[in-house]
C-alpha cells in the first residue's frame, strides 16, 4: 500500500513536462448530467429558453464543470496502481469564460511540483498539477491547479 521509489522517480521526471493535450467536445447532455449529479436545479445549466432570456444564448456549464474536464484521466495516467491511494488536497481555479454546448475544450496539463513527506506507513507525495483550458477559438477559458496526495 505504499508508493515505491521507482514510481516516485518516474513522477519526478515528468515535472514541468507538458503532457499530450486532451480534447473534449462539449455536449448539452454532459452539461445537464453534470448539474443533475450535483443536484443543482439552477435553470442556467438546464433550460435553453431561460439561458437565452438571461443573455447567455442558451444553457452554459456550471462553475465546477471545467474542473472535471480531463482530471480523472490525468489522475489515472499518473497512478494506475489500485494499491496506491490518491486523495485530493486542494483546488485553485481562475475562471475566464463560460463553457457552452458545441465548445471544443483543449486541456493541457503538466506536473508543477512534487513534495515528498514521510508518513506513518510510508512516503506521501503532494503532487500539484497545472491545467490550462482553451476553447476552439483559442480563447483562455480557465486555469487551474490541483494538488493531490498520493501514498
Amino acid at each position: 500500500m505504499t508508493i515505491d521509489s521507482g514510481k516516485i522517480k518516474e513522477l519526478e521526471s515528468r515535472v514541468g513536462v507538458e503532457e499530450k493535450p486532451l480534447v473534449y467536445e462539449i455536449e448539452k447532455g454532459m452539461i445537464k448530467r453534470f448539474a443533475r449529479a450535483i443536484g443543482d436545479p439552477n435553470p442556467l445549466w438546464q433550460n435553453e429558453e431561460y439561458g437565452v432570456k438571461a443573455g447567455y444564448g442558451g444553457i452554459i456549464a456550471s462553475l465546477n464543470f471545467v474542473l472535471t474536464l480531463g482530471f480523472g484521466k490525468i489522475l489515472q495516467d499518473l497512478i494506475s496502481d489500485p494499491e496506491i491511494t490518491v486523495l485530493h488536497g486542494s483546488t485553485e481555479l481562475e475562471n475566464y469564460k463560460e463553457i457552452r454546448p458545441g465548445d471544443v475544450i483543449t486541456v493541457t496539463n503538466k506536473i508543477r511540483n512534487i513534495r515528498e513527506r514521510q508518513g506513518s506507513t510510508g512516503k506521501m507525495l503532494f503532487v500539484t498539477i497545472e491545467m490550462v483550458y482553451k476553447n476552439q477559438k483559442k480563447e483562455l477559458v480557465a486555469e487551474c491547479r490541483q494538488m493531490t496526495i498520493i501514498y
Binding site: 449529479a37 450535483i38 443536484g39 443543482d40 439552477n42 442556467l44 438571461a54 443573455g55 456550471s62 462553475l63 465546477n64 474542473l67 472535471t68 482530471f71 486523495l87 485530493h88 488536497g89 486542494s90 483546488t91 485553485e92 481555479l93 481562475e94 475562471n95 463560460e98
Partner: peptide, 29 residues
C-alpha cells in the same frame, strides 16, 4: 472532494444570480 466543491459552487452561483459570476475559487479538502 470535487463534488463537495461543486456544492460550494452551487451555493455561490445561487448567491450571485444570473448576472454575477465567479472569477476565482480556491478549495482545501
Amino acid at each position: 472532494g470535487q463534488l463537495a466543491g461543486a456544492f460550494l459552487g452551487q451555493m455561490l452561483t445561487d448567491w450571485v444570480g444570473d448576472k454575477g459570476n465567479i472569477s476565482k475559487l480556491s478549495l482545501s479538502y
